[in-house]
Design a binder for these strands. Sequence first.
DNA 1: TTATGTGCAAACTGTTTGCGCGAAG
DNA 2: CTTCGCGCAAACAGTTTGCACATAA
Lengths: 156, 156
Amino acid sequence: MRHTDESPAVAEALGLLRDKGERVTAARRAVLQVLDDASGHLCAEDIVTRVDEAEPGVHRATVYRSLQSLAELGIVAHTHVPGSATIYHLRHSAAARTGHAHLQCTTCQGFFDIPIEWLGPIGDRVRTQLGFELDAQHAALLGTCAECRAADPAAH
Amino acid sequence: MRHTDESPAVAEALGLLRDKGERVTAARRAVLQVLDDASGHLCAEDIVTRVDEAEPGVHRATVYRSLQSLAELGIVAHTHVPGSATIYHLRHSAAARTGHAHLQCTTCQGFFDIPIEWLGPIGDRVRTQLGFELDAQHAALLGTCAECRAADPAAH
DNA sequence: TTATGTGCAAACTGTTTGCGCGAAG
DNA sequence: CTTCGCGCAAACAGTTTGCACATAA
């Protein structure tokens, strides 16, 4: 199976797959390429849609399974978004290199990235006081973004 | 419709309902009583089950609708739990009086409450730097609790 | 009496699973 | 050739909705 336009990050990820004895398939390649092309913040359904453009016929379930195995291998990361769909990104893409947590605006559903360091103090606190190891990037935080606050001051 | 054992917090909430011109129904009374009896951390399905014990025949959809209207009125609060069901609690119960955020252990699914103040610094930071108003109690944070860390150090 | 809440069934979103076929290694 | 991943359909959990009927006010 020959292939054409594949970015370095995808090639690297595929190499990793091979090294781990995992199979390199058209579906996985397409999922990785979609993730690398995107700015992050893609939910599974978005990925299904985009994969289907590049590689028609790939089934929804396959995308979910690919994301699952790629996540277990540490190649992609996912963030649960309370009240809506989980979002995914390539762990070794530029956007992911600087670890970040996610904020979602509950009005416009938009995402905002923040440095995980901002969650350092609270991570320390729950660790020392409860022995709880916080995984700050694993869940998005909710609130209202500047734009939506300006548009509807009632929702301050 | 006469009723019997109803706690002060429930009576207060029902008074509030009446004041706002909302109707006091058996279903709403039962939902409120269940929430007051519980320690919080109940998901809608738990509430359905318990309501059905006190007031048989109340439909799932009615419980959801009650929770929704009670939430809009500010009588109950809900917390989205990433990857699983939303949890609810009475806003004016003892447990809720001191505002708290939620941690969920992704291994044992247990909940832990933390003072909302612990999230103050990060709330300030996103407000000043992004204009984003954080709603810290609206989403649970994820991680691994002390017990599960001890049981499986690999998941540190 | 009349607006509002309820019961029921059905739809909906996001995600997972059992099965047999097909392709990667 | 053998194992692992895939396509498909179906199920699943959590939640919402349209409709006709019941009931609190």
